[in-house]
Each structure stands twice: as structure tokens, then as C-alpha cells.
Design a protein around this nucleic acid. Sequence first.
DNA 1: CCAATTGTTATTTA
DNA 2: ATAAATAACAATTG
Length: 273
Amino acid sequence: MPEFAEVEFYRKQWNPGLGRRVRSVQVHRESRVFRACAVRRLVRQLTGATLISSAAAAKQMLFRFRRGRWLGVHLGMSGELRVEPAGYTPQKHDHLVLAQRGRCLVFADPRMFGRIQFATGRTPPAWWTCLAPPILSGAFTAEEVAAFLRRRGRTPIKAVLLMQERFPGVGNWMADEILWRAAIHPCRLAGSLTAVEVHSIWRECRQVCRQALATIAGRGDHVPPALNAHIPDTWLFNHRWEDGGRCPRTGARLMRAEVGGRTTCWSPARQRS
DNA sequence: CCAATTGTTATTTA
DNA sequence: ATAAATAACAATTG
């Protein structure tokens, strides 16, 4: 489920634990989510550690603990972070629980495509620092986007938008939202776009990221009561899975088909092949 | 039983 | 050799 802004939403869920010590760590040891992680070491090192700060980038989260301990979380398809009362008993899909004095910080993921990572050191680990420059940073330029689309010229634009090495945090629904706003058909080959269309892609990437962040993740420390509760009906998002759904701008029927290996939704009236 | 799911990666194909 | 397409991963739901 979670893409860019949803990841930020989940990051904030653990905010009540900031500045607090972890008294004990519970793990579902053999779970796949620990495939890139030395679990015993994680348990040993995080027990007694104090959570200092956290950050989200792309679809990745980083939690920093005192004395150079770093916890990485990727939510995969079905992961979530939440807070439970002290004394909480982990359920079937809870793979990692950090118990603090007044609460438990829980990572759950039924499908287990998610990933937990752990590292120690003075500086953030490589899997964090090597992420592509954020779409909302100055390093995400129209020129870089144009060059990338040229290099992937024979690939449908929908599939290109899902490539994390250039569009960090963009997932299936965001890619569809961007193409719908830019009025570009998802099957168009990346190399066939005009300069104006390439520029629209760049602009709408930033626009969708910015608006999604404000709407889904909230502003400052404020977090919306539920994930995706306040997404306006003027977005494609709220119509893409409805059977017989209609384009909020043209009123025409939406189409659905597999493009670039993912179910894709578009408005034929706006997005011409 | 079959098909579906908002992600990533290894393997196969072109 | 590179890039694109496909399969696989796992659990749950309709």
C-alpha cells in the first residue's frame, strides 16, 4: 500500500516514542521481513536504546537511536507502523515490537514484502544515503527527468515512473495520478513524449508529491486521523478502483488495464494514446 | 478454486 | 552486452 506520503504518515505514528527509551524488543525471528537483517544483533543493540529522531525518504524510513544505532523500515505492500498500549501482546502479523514505558511501537506486515534493516555507526547507513534525490528537492530537475526518459525511450511511461532510481517514492497510484494530471496515456513510450509533455511529467510529479504530503501525512506534527481519509474527489485516487468509475474532470468512464506489469487506470477522454 | 492486491528483485527474454 | 519483460515472493479477500 504505502507510497511516498503514506510512508511519511506511518513514520509519524511512532512520534509518541521520540526521546523515550526502549525497554524490550520483541521480534518474530524467522519472519521474511528480517531477510536483510541480523536479528539477534538488532535485539541486543536496541534494548535500552533511546529513540532520538526519524526521517522518511522515498518508501524508506530511518529511525535514529542514541549511540549510533539506526533502524530502517520499508513497508512493502502491506506494512504499517502503529502504537499500542504498554503491555501489548504481539499478534500474528506483528514482526517487530519496541516496548517503551508507556507504549509499544509496532511494525506489522501481513504479506511480508516489507523489510527491516539495522546498522550501527556515526553516520547513516549506505542503504539510506544512496537513495535517489527526493522529488521535492532542487536536485530533481526537469533536465534530469528528460535525460532519464530518453534513456528509457522504449519503455511505457507508466513503467518508467515506477523506477525508484529516478522517481523515489512513486508507486502505482501516484504514477497513475501523475499521468492523469499531465494528460498522458500510460502506454506512451517514454521516448515519444514531446518536450512539453516531459515538462508536465516533471511538474505533476512535484505537484502530486506536495499535495499528497499535505493531505495524507498532515502538516508539522499534526497527523490525519486515518490514512487517505481526506483525499479530495477531484483526484483520480478516489475513483480508480470503483467499478464504472468516472474521470473527475471529464465525467467519462475510466479505463483499467495492465501496463508495465501493474494494473493501471486512466481516463481515455484526457489521455490519448 | 481462481483472480486480485498501492513493491522489489532475480531471472529470462529480446 | 544492455534493457525490457516476467516470475517469484506471501497472505488475504472477493
